[in-house]
Amino acid sequence: MSSMIATRDAYGEILAELGAENENIVVLDADLSGSTKTAGFAKSFPKRFFNMGIAEANMIGTAAGLAAAGKIPFASTFAIFAVGRAWEQVRQSVAYPRANVKIVATHSGVTVGEDGGSHQSVEDIAIMRAVPNMTVIVPADGIETKLAIRAAAAYNGPVYVRLGRNKVPTIFDENYRFVIGKGVQLRAGTDLTFIGTGLMTAQALAAAEKLSEAGISARVIHLSTIKPIDEEIIVAAARETGAIVTAEEHSVVGGLGGAVAEVLCDRFPAPLKRVGLNDRFGTSGKADELLKYFGLMPDDLVEAAKEVLQRK
């Protein structure tokens, strides 16, 4: 396996780089700067870092005010708090005025691990995706995280970036060109298509490899931007492979699976199997145990593929 890096670590690194390049970049955190990795920026640029304490609603509102004053604020905390606790502030103070605020949330999904279901955000993609003006990005690895954060800083408007706690395999190389709103095909295939986001894309690649051993040709698409969604790459996959399996470390309600289902229903109905958390909360455990427990392993995707193929 290639190198492993947590997307939050990549975030910390790129934030410090961007801070040196652009003095309008400011960073806010809610007492989790060691965990979200904004602490590096804080050390390098103390005047442009604001720890807002354990008060996420005010952090998001303050970020909106900084944007109104011409700054490019990055506001970070765990996904459950950025999206849950501060949802209405995100809606009213950030998205509604189309404020240039970047909400970069770490510790998303069940791989938060031991902290348990209270801290495992499994509905944040759905919630953020429903808010007008919001762009939603779920990078797969450290390389893509850096490119996505750089793109978010260059984009004028609200962006939600969903990052994770644990090390994940690097699937992109330095030649990768990230574009907001564009999906990318990582593996060619003709029998069905896996569409993954975040760390689940690596699982989909492993599943496709297993399927090829059984003579099944699976295409793999990575959709890091959930909104605006790349309709064309989804429609092409449905037309050319005839069946889709989505894979996300998130509830199957309203996230990547929901978004893909909407595109398919509107444009090119095809059999779809959504793999994710089946409308349930997370629980305490080790991250790798939880991926198994919730059916988010390559073998689970292989089973989903076989099921959806029967519906072709």
Partner: peptide, 30 residues
């Protein structure tokens, strides 16, 4: 603020304006 000249931010959902004012004050001081 999107449509009305002279309006700085969107308000009306009570409790949120002061946070935005705090952000503006921080930004202006920077």
């Amino acid at each position: 603020s999107k449509g009305t000249p002279g309006i700085e931010v969107c308000t009306g959902s009570l409790g949120q304006g002061l946070s935005m004012a705090v952000g503006m004050a921080l930004g202006l001081r920077l």
